[in-house]
């Protein structure tokens, strides 16, 4: 895998990959991709993709409000909050 391609993936995944481990991670990925390459040889014409092992169907929930306000408890574990808001570096649209 090209360095630039891996950098693109890392940006898409919002993941810094330090130079010190870049080689290791990159090699590992190449090996995994080599491993999965053998899938290409399988003829899967007409096979329905299987997303769930049981081929089950979604159960729907009644439209009821079951959650109250627990903001303080939830924000107690937040990196940074103010006036009930989660703070992040400035969002630029």
């Amino acid at each position: 895998m090209e360095r630039s391609q891996l950098e693109k993936l890392a940006l898409l995944a919002r993941l810094n990959v330090d130079d010190s481990v870049f080689e290791e991670v990159s090699q590992g990925i190449s090996q995994v991709l080599g491993l999965v390459e053998q899938l290409q040889a399988v003829d899967t014409t007409g096979v329905e993709p299987m997303a769930h092992p049981l081929d089950a169907l979604q159960r729907l929930r009644p439209d009821e409000v079951t959650e109250g306000n627990c903001r303080d408890a939830y924000q107690a574990i937040a990196p940074q909050t103010e006036n009930g808001l989660y703070l992040v570096p400035k969002v630029i649209e």
Binding site: A10, L15, N16, I29
Partner: peptide
């Protein structure tokens, strides 16, 4: 945050 928070194997799988 994600680069520091995750180890190499996790990074590898996310990227794959």
């Amino acid at each position: 945050s994600r680069g520091e928070g995750f180890g190499n194997e996790v990074k590898r799988r996310i990227l794959v």
